[in-house]
Design a protein around this nucleic acid. Structure first.
Lengths: 191, 191
DNA sequence: GTAGAAAGTGAGGGGCATCTCAACATATGC
DNA sequence: GCATATGTTGAGATGCCCCTCACTTTCTAC
């Protein structure tokens, strides 16, 4: 993809193998998976991993597009397709939670573990900014209580993230999350 | 306290020193504090710690009364002093959250880390059973929506626990927690 | 071809915590 | 007193994971 110039051909290839492996391992086991596993899956030594990417954070950033970027972009698109401010915010929330549920890496991302993975954090911030906009739009449209702030949205998503991969979380966490949002609507479902 | 018979006098004393140290360290740093630190604080070697108590879980259970039992009992008492079902449940919730906020060990306990610390888990279960009763009493009294189940209470407390010692938690988590409860009342504050 | 720069390798060192065990100490019963 | 069962000790083994670096291999430009 992004041919890094001044990199020997084998190094380039290894970097690519590492990207592929990192993507697979991160997606399966989350962003805290042992780097040794990624090197092994790439068919490369741990030393090479460190030669190519200086740290876990850089490795994350090297795969951020496939890891999170695309998914968040798709989420944004589907969100903006919705017709009403309410439907938009609802789409945003449910899809974000689904993402967290289905993808341990996305979950780690949204929870800001690895705050030094700059590109990843940026991608998350952008999504959160969209979320905040949707909240404000809903306020202006008069369909969402002013009591429900953008920060409340962050909280609700944070909670979903924490719950979604904790076996000790109460089974009914989703009820509470859903209700926290649905209680804030001030309209009938189609405005 | 509980003189364990068939234990030599010095061993008995060391066990007591370990209890004291464990209580202090757990309270300060949570139930996952290194056992070496507890041994050091007790003025005893790590080997002795393992001789006296076979594992972290047993050590937790050995101090469970002072660690959680008393506090939970006090909480129960203050809860039952309240005059109305609503006031009782409110007391229970706010005091439980305060406990989690102020005491890392209580937090670990309520979150069921260390599920093998049997006595600790029992103590927590008892508190949770009280919470569930209060919810049901409030239902019967007609002051709490039937939509708010005992499991919702667990969820809310779990969430508070997760948030209270996570620096990455959104600042406004308490808003959402409080609202999840207050939205469920069906009366005016004094029934 | 070949030299020399670039890259690959993986054993090993470091951190952190758990847990063990052979050598050493002491309380207790006779 | 003294034998001995009972305790204590702490260095070191184990388990994870991170990261480095002296040595080997491979590319590539000439």
């Amino acid at each position: 993809m992004t041919a890094t110039p001044g990199l020997r051909r084998d190094a380039q290839a290894n970097l690519e193998k590492l990207r592929v492996a990192a993507l697979a391992v991160f997606s399966r086991r989350g962003l805290s998976a042992p780097l040794e596993d990624i090197a092994r899956e790439a068919g490369v030594s741990i030393g090479t991993l460190y030669n190519r990417v200086g740290s876990r954070e850089e490795l994350i950033d090297a795969v951020v597009d496939n890891l999170a970027g695309e998914k968040l972009k798709a989420l944004r698109d589907r969100t903006l397709e919705a017709e009403t401010p309410r439907a938009q915010l609802e789409t945003f929330i449910t899809e974000m939670i689904d993402l967290q549920l289905s993808d341990p890496a996305m979950n780690d991302a949204m929870l800001r573990r690895y705050p030094d993975a700059v590109l990843l954090i940026n991608a998350c911030e952008r999504s959160m900014a969209l979320g905040a906009e949707l909240v404000e739009t809903a306020h202006v449209a008069g369909v969402l209580s002013d009591e429900f702030t953008p920060e409340d949205l962050m909280t609700v998503l944070w909670m979903a993230g924490m719950a979604s991969h904790d076996p000790a979380a109460p089974h009914g966490w989703r009820r509470v999350v859903d209700r926290s949002v649905s209680a804030a609507w001030t309209d009938h479902p189609n405005s």
